[in-house]
């Protein structure tokens, strides 16, 4: 197979990984009826906390798990506002994004000052099970997180949502909380649990960026990936497997623009066109898929017992 294509597919899987983790996390949350606009901030916070802890303790894995924990806590904060207080989810979510963004930058500046070269750590290594095999060697040279995201997180989410009573409870809470409540499902508890799980996955996506892909933390490390993940959930019609296809489309466009830039083609258009392309493709995909989107009926609606 052509090396260009092999490299492209390998890069696609890498780029799609953080988006997939965040989008699956958001899928749990939205399936239970909450729109989490804290997603961008939770990714950013996860990226920061992961980097910070790994740098201070010297343990990448400790950094990763503390980042996941930070995501769980951020999810619970979102739950406090959207579930217990029942306030506007757009506004509370954005508030959490700005809060977590500000907190990360505040702490980063306190710890590392305003140095021009960002501090870095030795990132997670890539696994290469087929090291010396030509095509497979490149394709399967991936981070452990990429394997876990595609082979564990997605099937597990699908199985949980569609094949277990827990998943049935999540979906019923997101579709018709009154009926779910009448059937004895604890609406509040289910929403808290999905926000905790989802927050953890979203932060894991952020930690992947700082601990694996980059080995550093920068202001632009997330740069809208949380919003893309939000779009992927709608594109995937709240189905983990379809969400995965969406992540691959975005990842593919992003990887393609990286390859085209790396080839240094002398094109008469600015390179930013390529950078913007994945976002535009996401919007177009959303318009095409969004027409058939069936939103969880109780999305955005706080539940109140009469």
């Amino acid at each position: 197979m052509d090396t260009f294509l092999v490299n492209l597919i390998a890069a696609t899987l890498r780029v799609a990984t953080p988006l997939l983790l965040a989008a699956i996390g958001e899928t749990y949350i939205e399936r239970a009826g909450v729109l989490n606009l804290g997603i961008e901030g939770m990714m950013f916070f996860g990226a920061f906390v992961g980097f910070f802890v790994a740098d201070v303790t010297g343990s990448l894995w400790l950094g990763f798990w503390v980042a996941v924990l930070s995501g769980v806590l951020s999810g619970l904060l979102m739950a406090l506002f959207s579930v217990t207080f029942g306030v506007n989810q757009h506004v509370s979510g954005l508030g959490i994004t700005l809060l977590l963004g500000g907190l990360s930058l505040f702490a980063f500046r306190l710890k590392y000052g305003g140095r021009s070269v960002p501090p870095s750590i030795e990132p997670f290594p890539q696994l290469s099970p087929f090291k010396d095999v030509p095509v497979l060697g490149t394709l399967f040279e991936q981070y452990l997180f990429t394997y876990v995201a595609f082979l564990v997180i997605v099937p597990l989410a699908w199985w949980l949502l569609y094949r277990t009573s827990f998943g049935l409870n999540i979906r019923s809470v997101g579709e018709n909380p009154e009926a779910a409540d009448a059937a004895g499902v604890n609406v509040f508890l289910i929403r808290y649990i999905t926000l905790a799980i989802g927050g953890g996955l979203i932060a894991a996506g952020g930690a992947f960026l700082s601990l694996a892909q980059l080995g550093a933390f920068t202001h632009g490390i997330v740069s809208g990936r949380g919003w893309v993940a939000l779009a992927l959930v709608i594109f995937g019609n709240w189905d983990p497997v379809k969400v995965m296809w969406g992540a691959l489309i975005f990842g593919g466009t992003f990887a393609l623009q990286l390859r085209l830039q790396a080839m240094g083609l002398n094109l008469p258009i600015p390179y930013e066109t390529f950078l913007a392309l994945p976002y535009v493709v996401t919007i177009v995909a959303l318009v095409i898929a969004g027409r058939n989107a069936t939103y969880p009926a109780a999305l955005l609606k706080p539940y109140r017992r009469e």
Binding site: G224, A231, E272, L275, A276, I283
Partner: peptide, 27 residues
């Protein structure tokens, strides 16, 4: 017209606009 969620599209267009500004300023 098409009931496409405005939250997500307006957010994504913010990113697109930053690339346009960058393209103008670096071009």
């Amino acid at each position: 017209k098409l009931a496409v969620d405005e939250v997500v599209t307006t957010l994504l267009l913010n990113s697109v606009m930053l690339f346009i500004v960058s393209a103008l300023l670096n071009g």
